[in-house]
């Protein structure tokens, strides 16, 4: 049976996480098709066609696919899903939004946020904020899966798939895009960055994040935050790393002024090297840190910036 991967994109560029999802599809094994749905997606379809292992790209273009509204996107995916053994999307806010709708339309269960493929019907996924890893087997005829991007190395780019257009479904007409406020940043995207520097409640206010930004810029790093820092209004919520925010797994994660609650650890404990800077030597973050520095961050951060 073939595998359908739903591409994530912003109508001009393919989101890199799509390649991680294709890598998971490769491990399942089978012909891989990528579905691109959007307003004007020819360039996105061409990018998708280059991903290693992809044999066909389905390009569905309609105004009402521009913002990936779940009501419309799920109807489109469900219209072709019965031809496939597996349907995969990234476990991003977009994938988490429309995929369960696809599963219910097909009357199957969804396996959320897989981190490993054991076989075509058996997958590993974290539960209880990553404090346990469940191995689950699906008996459904169509396996609807969301994939944690950081758990799979991105697929290469030496493919040359054919591109076919796929007729759009009618606009469901029950939801509409009203507006969006996207955070603007020159730094790398949090979930794709090789180095992440995160601040917590210990930063004390939003202005002090400037100290982190300076270190991040020296390292070419993305900047994240704990829930406490977001709730205190220091930084916007899309910077939150944790069970209910973003899941990151960079080469280097530097946690500054973060105590290390289990909900935060769920979002970063698969990082290769973890550094903790905290003045409380009892902070739980030190239990997962490879290198811990017990110090006042207001002294340590400028020193670190200078030393880099």
């Amino acid at each position: 049976m073939s595998i359908l991967v739903i591409a994530e994109h912003n109508n001009s560029e393919l989101a890199p996480v799509t390649r991680n999802v294709v890598a998971a599809a490769q491990q399942i094994g089978g012909d891989i098709h990528v579905l691109v749905a959007g307003k004007s997606t020819d360039s996105v379809a061409e990018e998708a066609a280059k991903i290693t292992g992809v044999t066909k790209v389905l390009n569905s273009v309609a105004d009402h696919y521009e913002h990936a509204l779940a009501e419309n996107l799920s109807n489109l995916v469900a219209s072709v899903a019965s031809d496939y053994g597996h349907v995969l999307a990234a476990a991003t806010t977009t994938g988490k939004n429309f995929m369960p709708r696809v599963a219910a339309l097909m009357d199957v269960e969804q396996v959320s946020e897989i981190i490993a493929v054991e076989s075509a019907d058996t997958f590993k996924r974290p539960i209880y904020a990553g404090n346990a890893i469940a191995t689950v087997q699906s008996a459904d005829p169509i396996k609807v899966l969301t994939v944690r991007g950081t758990a799979f190395e991105p697929a290469g780019l030496d493919g040359s798939a054919s591109i076919e257009s796929l007729a759009a479904q009618e606009d469901a007409g029950i939801s509409e895009f009203v507006g969006e406020e996207l955070a603007v940043s020159d730094r790398p995207e949090l979930t794709a960055a090789g180095v992440v520097v995160s601040g917590g409640r210990g930063m004390q206010n939003g202005d002090n994040f400037e100290l982190l930004y300076k270190v991040a810029d020296k390292l070419g790093a993305a900047v994240g935050a704990s829930r406490a820092a977001v709730d205190e209004g220091f930084v916007p919520n899309d910077m939150q790393v944790g069970q209910t925010g973003k899941i990151v797994a960079p080469e280097l994660y530097i946690a500054v002024g973060i105590s290390g609650q289990i909900q935060h650890l769920a979002g970063m404990k698969d990082s290769k090297v973890i550094v903790a800077i905290n003045k409380d030597e009892e902070a739980p973050i030190f239990q997962v840190a490879d290198y811990g520095l017990v110090a006042d961050l207001f002294e340590a951060l400028p020193e670190l910036e200078k030393a880099l």
Binding site: H67, T92, T94, F177, E180, E181, L182, T191, P236, D238
Partner: peptide
């Protein structure tokens, strides 16, 4: 959403 906020009607 991942990049910020989106409003739907």
């Amino acid at each position: 959403i991942d990049g910020g906020l989106q409003t739907v009607g």
